[in-house]
């Protein structure tokens, strides 16, 4: 079975669904027993992380969203053994929380549902019967890769999670020196501003 076939098989009932009002229906139809509540899900499997609180100071992320992104950061940014800035030194979660605050409220609501789907769908995706937050590293990475090659909904969700994580790491200037990205240079180089341009010479008019 190819990666794509695995992906299609994993969440086949969701294949034609991509809009938010159908997301809840999608999970319901797939899991059969899912209890879907407004703005979120009752979990298809309990996880040890459900008992753990989110850190103080988060303004946008729910506890479940925090745990999902925490796990995604661990598997998507394995900086140990690389020359890159250790992920532990970068406030990736805080940056994700900030980005969430920029999302239009209606889309933010959809996003919450979508993230819940991403987490829960791993239960019935044929992987390990676990939520994404409980997958081991290898399975979690495979989950991302399978979904990146999957149906429209899967590709969308995998991309969304990755983008939040990647941007929230790489936006921090502390991540730039190892890849020799220069960042802001004008002040450092002492480049003067040219300011506003002077009024143009209007002695000749266009004659159309």
């Amino acid at each position: 079975m190819t990666t794509k076939q695995q992906a299609d098989a994993a969440v086949a009932p969701l294949a034609s669904l991509s809009r938010r009002k159908l997301l809840k229906t999608a999970l319901w139809a797939s899991a059969g027993t899912a209890l879907v509540v407004a703005g979120g899900f009752a979990w298809l499997r309990r996880s040890p992380v459900d008992e753990l609180p989110a850190p103080d100071g988060l303004k946008q992320l729910s506890a479940s969203e925090y745990h999902l992104f925490r796990r995604a950061i661990e598997v998507l940014l394995p900086t140990d053994g690389t020359l890159l800035t250790p992920v532990a030194q970068i406030p990736v979660i805080a940056n994700i929380d900030h980005l969430m605050g920029l999302v239009e409220p209606a889309i933010r609501e959809e996003l919450g549902i979508a993230l819940g789907l991403f987490d829960n769908a791993a239960v019935f995706s044929g992987l390990h019967g676990k939520r994404f937050v409980d997958l081991d590293d290898e399975a979690a990475l495979r989950y991302f890769d399978v979904w990146s090659a999957g149906n429209t909904l899967q590709r969308t969700l995998a991309t969304v999670v990755k983008k939040f994580v990647y941007v929230s790491y790489w936006r921090d200037p502390a991540t730039w020196p190892p890849i020799r990205f220069d960042g802001a240079v004008s002040d450092r180089w002492g480049i003067p501003s040219l300011g506003n341009s002077p009024l143009p010479d209007e002695s000749v008019e266009v004659t159309a």
């Binding site: 598997v75 590293d137 990475l141 990647y166 941007v167 936006r171 190892p178 890849i179 020799r180």
Partner: peptide
């Protein structure tokens, strides 16, 4: 720049992605 690069390509998840970014220059 670095942020745009991480958004526009899919070199794979985890280590492949980090290698892609390590080689950004």
């Amino acid at each position: 720049g670095a942020v745009e690069m991480c958004l526009l390509n899919e070199p794979g998840s985890g280590k492949p992605f980090l290698q892609f970014m390590e080689e950004a220059r």
